[in-house]
Design a protein around this nucleic acid. Structure first.
Lengths: 155, 155
DNA sequence: CCTAATCCCATTGACGCCCATGATATCCCA
DNA sequence: TGGGATATCATGGGCGTCAATGGGATTAGG
């Protein structure tokens, strides 16, 4: 199954291209669409990315929602209208469209951060800052977690 | 399967023609009717569009509603009475009829917004405004989506 | 006969495809 | 174990192709 771990920082060239880390490409190798799907995060200054199968599973979950309902419209507008298919070129690079670069404030380098079933693209310094916060929050919440009992796992 | 994602803005020329994005055309390539079906949305200032197969699935869905009931009449009147088949020309363009342009307030450009199994045509600025709202509402409902079982997406 | 839609061709600009280079890690063999 | 050969990957740049667009010609239809 798809599994993205570790973080890689690659350069964005003057054409707006950036290499997707080879290990991430290997994870996506079996997919029919050779490339990734990326859309801006709701709350973070980052892009959520995964293979097409992941997007397909999102479509499947929206099928439980009534067509033309408010909920359906809001979900599909954010998930599909803002999502972009980014195909690999011969060297395993993708082109980052202007809109996505703007959302994540990407300029000359992109950090690919594994998140398990999907991964994220960050401006490298923003990622560092975010990770520091996340570590801090995790440390703060440890106590709470412990009190809640065993089930805590990875959250 | 058919999958429309991403948003593309194309110009409407002085003859009322507009190019359908190549990726959308590719999605529709297998269909017998080379073109799209479009009808005005009854809640949004936009046009719902898809291939003929999707319209067929809508017909199937209305069979769950009692024939000659008020609801059936309302649905079929809205969905099918104003729907238009718009054929591609040699370059993959369609002509937008006056009535449809009026409903969506289209003037010099059209935004094609993917919605998964179908897509919509908007006046570009109206789409931006709508997406901003939808995004906000979707962010509020993040928890709901997660409970429906798709994977954790983002946290 | 006039208006309007369809067809056909030209332009241009972006994107995909290809090759070259350099740097790094891996392997093989002495 | 060390050093050289090799494969892999990230990066840069040139070039061809195709998509979007515009305009003219031809045909249909009222």
């Amino acid at each position: 199954m798809a599994l993205f771990i570790d973080t890689f920082v690659n350069k964005i060239d003057r054409k707006g291209r950036v290499s997707v880390p080879a290990t991430f490409r290997a994870t996506l190798a079996e997919q029919t669409f050779q490339g990734i799907v990326a859309f801006p995060s709701f709350k973070l200054q980052a892009l959520h990315c995964a293979g097409m199968d992941w997007m397909q599973s999102l479509i499947d979950s929206t099928q439980n929602v009534d067509l033309f309902s408010q909920e359906h419209d809001d979900l599909t507008a954010s998930l599909f209208a803002d999502a972009k298919q980014l195909a690999f070129d011969g060297e395993g690079r993708i082109m980052l469209p202007e809109a996505l670069c703007a959302h994540a404030k990407l300029t000359e380098a992109a950090a690919f951060a594994g998140r398990g079933r999907y991964f994220e693209i960050w401006e490298p310094q923003a990622l560092e800052a975010y990770k520091a916060e996340a570590r801090q929050r995790a440390a703060d919440k440890q106590r709470t977690l412990r009190q809640q009992g065993s089930e805590g796992s990875h959250r």
